[in-house]
Design a protein around this nucleic acid. Structure first.
Lengths: 335, 335
DNA sequence: CAGATGCAGTTATACGCATAACCTATTTAC
DNA sequence: GTAAATAGGTTATGCGTATAACTGCATCTG
C-alpha cells in the first residue's frame, strides 16, 4: 500500500503539502512542487485509503441499499426488476464516486446499526413498509431515498420516489373497458401501498363508466402468510370466472397464465390477463404479456441525484411521481 | 455517535479496558468491571466504527463482488440468476460478519483500484473471462473466489467454483437421444469457457452413439458483437431445421421459443427446445421449460466458506465442481 | 522604513480504535 | 522470607488522512 507519507518522502515535502495537492487547494503549493507531486501520485498509482478518509472526514462514501423481502418463501432478488434497479443505482452512484453497501432483508434495528457502523452517508430504501420508512429515517438522521413508496410523511431529508401507480391501474382499467371487459378481477399480493394505488386507479376507471368493482373481485394472496402458488390454487376457482384479470406484477401474471393453461384455458382466447412492471421476459413470453411499463433507469437516476443533492445541502423535491405507460401485447383480447 | 471513549468515561475506566472487553481478552478484566462495561455497551447501543477498525486492523470487513457484463446491449443483472446469487452471498457473508461491496462491469484496473481504496479483504469474481481472473488475482494478492469459471490456473489464494457443465451438456445430449433426436443443434453465445464445456459434453453424448456433431450445428451469437435478437434472426432460418435445440441458458431458450411461435412453429410439437439454469420463470413458462438445474444456494455457501477459510489461513479445495441435474418439463418431446 | 499582506510551505492535532508495553498490588512457589 | 508470577488495570503509540495554526521570507503600502 502506498500512503501519502510515501509520496511526501519521494518528493521531499511534508504530507500536508501532498494532501493539499490531492484536494486541489489552490494557492498553497507552487506550480513546480504541485507538478512533481502529481507526477509521483500517478506514477506510483497512489489511491487514498477510504477508511482513513472516512474517519477523518465523517463521510464514508458509502450508500446503503436496503431491500426488504415480504413473505418468507419469496426471494425478491429473483425478480429481475431489482437486479436492474441495482445495476442502475450502482452505475449512477459510481459517477458520483459513491459506493453501494447491500443490506438485504434486514430489520430496522439492523439497518440502523449497520448504518452507524459503516457511517453510511445515505440510505436507499426499496420495497419497505411505511413504518420501516418512518423509523429508519427518524433514527438515521441523514438523507434517505425511498423507492416505490408514496406515503404521506414529510421530512426534510427524505425523498420518496414512486411511479404513478394510480394511473397505472387507471389506464389498465380503461384498456380493459375499451376491449369490452365488464367482469374483471385484480390479483394482488401483500398490502403494500403501491399495490393499493393500482387497485384504486383500476377501480376508478370502472367507476367512471358506472361499474362498481367491489372487494369480491379483488383477490389478495398475502405472501406473508402463504406461498403464492398455494394462494393461487385457493383463489383460482373464482378468479377464472372473470373475463379479464389485472395482476399486480408480471411475475404473477405469468404464473396465472401457466395455471390457466394447466386447467385447459387459453390466454387470451378464454381469458385476458395483464401484468405490471414490463420485466424483460414479458416481451417474449407466450403469449407476450400486456403490461404497464415504468422507466427503471430514470427512477435510479432521480434517486441518485436526489441523494447527491441532499448530501450537498441543496433543496430537493420530496415526492417524485414518475409516469407509467401501457404496453399492449398479446395477452388480452376484445370481447 | 457513541465511541469507546464514551463508554470508558461512563464506567470510569480507560479505553483500553473497554476495548479488551469488546474483544473478549480474558484475564485482563475483572468480572465486575467487565459486566459494568458490557451493560454500558448494550444500554448505549454502542457499535464500533468500521473505518477506525479497518484502519487499525488492516481488514476492512468488506468483500468485493465483481460481475462482468459481456455485450453492450445486455444488462446481466436482469438475469434472475445473478439476483439470486447475490442474495445468497449477502446472506452467507453476513453470518460471517462480512459485508458486500458491489462492483458492476468494471475493468481490471478499476477493480484493483477499488480493492486497494477500500482495503477489500477478498474478491468474488462472477462471469469473468480467464485473463481478467488471472490479472485480478495476481495483482490483488488476497483471497479470490471465482464463480462459474473453470480455468486451469493454480494459485494458493484462488478458489474456482463451477458447475459440472460438461456433464450438464452430456445429460442433455443423452436426454435428447433418449427422445430419438438425431438432428440437433446448440444455441450458444459468447466464448465463455463454461459454455464450451456444455457444448463439449453435449457432443460427447452423441459421439458415444456414433453421431458426430460438427460446428455447423453449433450456433453462436456473439453478444459482444451483436444484439441477441439480431443474432437470433440471423441464425433462425438454419436453426429451425433441427428437431431439437439445446440452448445455453433458459433466457435464450425462452426467446427462441417465442421466435418459433411467431413463425408458426410450436414447441414441442414442431421442435423441441431445452435451456440451462432453471430460472424461476422456467417452471411456469408456456411450455414449461426442460432445463438443467444447479443449486445456486450451495454454490454461494461454498464460495463464502472458501473465502472465510482462506481469510483465516486454512487450507481450501482450489477447484470445486458442483453437480447438475436434468429437469424434465414440457418443452421437449419424443419423435 | 514599519507594518501589513501574500506566498509556500511545515508542524501539530484529531478522527476511533487496538494493542504492546508498562505499572502496581497481591498471590504463589520453594 | 524472598523472588517470581499473576491479576487487573493504565499509558503510549500508531493506523492514513485532513486541516487549523504556525513559520519564515518576500513584497507591497503609505
Amino acid at each position: 500500500m502506498i500512503r501519502i507519507k510515501d509520496i511526501a518522502e519521494i518528493c521531499g515535502v511534508s504530507t500536508a503539502t501532498v494532501s493539499y495537492v490531492i484536494h486541489g487547494k489552490t494557492g498553497k503549493v507552487s506550480k513546480e512542487v504541485r507538478e512533481k507531486i502529481e507526477a509521483a501520485i500517478s506514477e506510483s498509482g497512489y489511491i487514498s485509503n477510504q477508511s482513513a478518509l472516512s474517519l477523518v472526514s465523517k463521510s464514508s462514501g458509502l450508500i446503503g441499499i436496503a431491500v426488504m423481502n415480504h413473505g418468507e418463501n419469496k426471494n425478491i432478488m429473483a425478480d429481475p426488476y431489482f437486479g436492474v434497479l441495482f445495476s442502475y443505482l450502482e452505475k449512477e452512484f459510481r459517477k458520483n464516486d459513491k459506493y453501494i453497501l447491500v443490506l438485504l432483508d434486514q430489520s430496522v434495528d439492523v439497518i440502523i446499526r449497520d448504518a452507524r457502523r459503516w457511517n453510511l452517508d445515505g440510505l436507499i430504501l426499496c420495497n419497505q413498509l411505511k413504518n420501516m420508512m418512518i423509523e429508519v429515517s427518524s433514527q438515521f438522521l441523514k438523507p434517505v431515498v425511498t423507492i416505490d413508496a408514496s406515503y404521506v410523511y414529510e421530512y426534510d431529508k427524505l425523498v420518496q420516489i414512486f411511479i404513478d401507480d394510480f394511473n397505472g391501474g387507471y389506464i389498465m382499467g380503461q384498456y380493459f373497458l375499451s376491449l369490452g371487459h365488464k367482469n374483471v378481477a385484480m390479483l394482488d399480493d401483500s398490502d403494500l401501498e403501491v399495490n393499493r394505488h393500482r387497485w384504486r386507479g383500476f377501480r376508478q376507471a370502472y367507476m367512471e363508466r358506472g361499474i362498481v368493482l367491489n372487494e369480491d373481485c379483488h383477490y389478495i394472496i398475502d405472501i406473508n402468510k402463504e406461498k403464492f402458488q398455494d394462494g393461487l390454487n385457493r383463489v383460482f376457482p373464482e378468479i377464472k370466472k372473470h373475463s379479464a384479470v389485472f395482476c399486480v406484477s408480471d411475475n404473477y401474471a405469468l404464473q396465472l397464465i401457466n395455471h390457466l393453461y394447466q386447467n385447459g384455458m387459453r390466454v387470451p382466447d378464454d381469458i385476458s390477463v395483464a401484468g405490471y412492471d414490463d420485466i424483460a421476459y414479458s416481451s417474449y413470453s407466450n403469449p407476450e404479456l400486456t403490461t404497464i411499463r415504468q422507466n427503471v433507469e430514470e427512477k435510479a437516476v432521480i434517486a441518485v441525484n436526489s441523494m447527491m443533492r441532499m448530501l450537498s445541502g441543496k433543496t430537493v423535491k420530496h415526492n417524485v411521481k414518475l409516469p407509467v405507460e401501457l404496453v399492449v401485447r398479446k395477452s388480452c383480447r376484445e370481447i
